[in-house]
């Protein structure tokens, strides 16, 4: 299993396009948007804004990274790599587990990169413990998105998996307040966002920055989504990927 993990990790390193996209998009967005808004804000709220946007865009990159596993596994399924692996002693559940873990790891570089940008651009400083919990929580919090990615990838052909995962990513990030804070939304949309995994995911980071523990409802909602997406991934795997 470790050998397979290393094999896949090396492949990921060798194709830096994905990571580059997952890192550059939020970093550039942060540079541009926070540059404008933070300068326009009054000095009292500028720091808060810089931090909030940092978490939002870090989450944006991490969610993109974790979801992108869908496109990879969809390709693996269609090229027959999955079938090749299934005819070795490696248990299929381990193949899926390795894929899921790798997907969550893809979420870390964007978080670190945007954090670094926040520090360099706006002097965002946090106690080292808070930095650690931001990275740690925003890593663990990608689990539901990795599972959603797997569900998409095992269920759909590559040509379809690509736009579907992008659509999921885009809708979830916008509606979950990763780009624009949900305070700016109409009330109905705010209540809707409360239930979204992306909002609850970013909330982990926003609370960690403020030195707070994850909220109970937030954690429960994230766990709920993780279970739903895990069930979906298990179903699409059995239905479409196991036999082919």
């Amino acid at each position: 299993m470790l050998a397979y993990f290393r094999f896949e990790l090396r492949r990921l390193r060798r194709d830096p396009r994905l990571l580059l996209f997952a890192v550059l998009t939020p970093v550039v967005s942060y540079l541009v948007f926070s540059g404008v808004t933070v300068r326009a804000a009054d000095p009292a709220s500028a720091g808060i804004l810089a931090r909030a946007m940092m978490i939002g865009l870090a989450g944006y990159g991490a969610v993109f990274g974790a979801l992108s596993v869908g496109v990879s596994v969809s390709q693996e399924r269609s090229t027959g790599w999955l079938r090749q692996l299934r005819s070795t002693p490696l248990a299929p559940s381990r193949v899926v587990a390795v894929r899921a873990v790798l997907a969550t790891l893809t979420g870390i570089p964007p978080v670190v990169a945007v954090g670094l940008t926040g520090y360099l651009q706006h002097g965002v400083t946090l106690p080292i413990g808070a930095w650690a919990s931001v990275v740690g929580l925003l890593w663990l919090g990608t689990i539901p998105f990795a599972l959603l990615g797997l569900a998409i990838g095992y269920g759909l052909a590559p040509q379809v998996a690509q736009p579907v995962s992008f659509l999921c990513f885009f809708l979830l990030s916008v509606l979950g307040g990763l780009l624009v804070p949900i305070n700016a939304f109409p009330v109905l949309l705010q209540r809707f966002a409360d239930w979204l995994p992306t909002f609850r995911y970013a909330e982990l980071g926003w609370r960690a920055v403020a030195g707070d523990w994850p909220s109970l409802p937030g954690t429960a909602i994230l766990l709920g989504w993780a279970l739903v997406f895990a069930a979906a991934a298990a179903w699409t795997y059995r239905r479409f990927a196991a036999v082919r």
Partner: peptide
Amino acid sequence: DAGFVANATVRELVELARALY
């Protein structure tokens, strides 16, 4: 109908198979 993935070499593929058996 089994196939391989990109971004890996023949040797890495063989090493992977060796590690699985």
